[in-house]
Amino acid sequence: MTTTPRILIIAGGLTHERDVSVRSGRRVANVLHQAGHEVRVCDLDASLLPTLEEWSPDVVWPLVHGSIGEDGSLQALLESLGVPFVGSHSVQAMMASNKPTAKGLLASAGVSTPAWLSLPQSLFRQLGATAVLQALDPRLTFPVVVKPTDGGSALGISRADGTEALRSAMVDAFAYGERVMIEQFVGGTEIAVSILDLEDGPAPLPPIEIVTDDGSYNYDARYTTDTTQYFVPARLDAALTSAVTQAAVQVHQVLGLRHLSRIDFIVDSEGSVWFIDANVAPGMTDTSLFPQAAEAAGSFADTCRRIVAFAASGR
């Protein structure tokens, strides 16, 4: 193996998050190319397997967001081919990317997470949407957050303050998958903690506070508007900073993640830290949170170099 590994970045794919994935792939490719690496970007299509065979990269960095990019499918393929790659193993990626599964594992480990209920679209078709929604009222109190059980970039996520809004929110969420999760809304400050897990084990990067005009960090707020404010590091006191970063490391370890992750929380008005989501393939665009945290810790470019070098070693 050369001292500077040849890197194949997989980006794109036929997911709802294709555009974000392509932008992530291009940015990481540019950073690594400028660092002297030989880098190729390949779409998740029929060209992938021939490229892997013909070019024989030292390490692959999957940057496909959502569905098969994060649910363990792509990771399982790379494992079967014996190709070193950046990110978590297939089983761990599958568990982390499924929101109810991740929440269940973490709740069992003592991590605080809002109450939730996960339902398939088939249940609504068989029992009737009105009957099911009426039965849900005692389980969770409004407001609630409705989201697809899989996927990222906040696609299909909305808040519902009543039954009619809940019905509409579930229709929106079902557009992105066959199963939705209804989660108790917890008000507070949105905090994202990126984890870098290399030679010395998992370590948190500076936490980021996200502030939006309407308090909704949805897809538009993340990628298509300039109204979102990011505070790096987050405006938390020392005790809360310690609490949220320790919680992020715990989540990363309980879920068995590898190399890097981004863990999202809400810190409520009483200072309680609530786990919301775990991301096994964090976005790497100009407005994405992992690059901002890496830059605040020193250098995003250096972080990328360290990640690919460590992953190329097969660890």
Rank of each mutant, 00 (worst) to 15 (best):
T141C: 10
Q134C: 02
Q126K: 02
E178P: 00
M170I: 15
R125G: 02
A109D: 12
A115W: 07
L136Y: 09
A169N: 09
T149M: 12
L117E: 09
S153K: 07
T149C: 12
S168H: 08
A160I: 05
P138C: 08
V132D: 00
A165S: 08
R125S: 11
F124D: 00
Y176W: 14
E164R: 12
I195F: 08
L140R: 15
L133T: 01
T149Y: 08
F174E: 15
S158H: 03
A160L: 05
V146A: 04
P120R: 15
F124N: 03
V171A: 12
K147F: 01
L117R: 15
V145H: 00
T113V: 08
T149P: 05
S194V: 14
I191S: 02
S158R: 03
G151C: 06
Y176M: 05
V186F: 02
S122F: 01
W116G: 08
V193A: 00
A115P: 05
E164D: 14
Q121K: 15
V111N: 02
G162V: 04
G162K: 03
V111C: 12
P143L: 05
F142H: 11
D172L: 12
T149G: 06
S122H: 04
G162L: 09
D150V: 13
P138Q: 13
P114T: 11
A175E: 15
G188H: 00
L119E: 06
D172R: 14
F174Q: 13
A173N: 07
P138W: 04
M181C: 12
I182D: 11
D150I: 04
V145P: 02
T113S: 12
G187W: 06
T189C: 09
V145T: 03
G156C: 14
P120K: 11
L133P: 00
S122K: 04
G110N: 04
G187V: 04
L155S: 09
A109G: 07
T163G: 07
F185A: 12
V111F: 10
P138S: 10
A175D: 07
Q184W: 04
G151E: 04
V171L: 09
I157Y: 01
Q121N: 06
K147I: 00
Q121Y: 03
L119W: 10
R179L: 00
P148E: 05
Q184D: 08
A169P: 11
L123H: 00
L155G: 02
G177C: 14
F124V: 04
Q134W: 01
V180F: 05
R159I: 06
T113K: 09
L133Y: 03
G110Y: 08
G156W: 06
A109S: 08
V171T: 13
L155P: 06
F124Y: 15
V132H: 01
V146Q: 01
D161Q: 06
W116T: 07
A160Q: 05
E183Q: 13
R159M: 07
D161A: 15
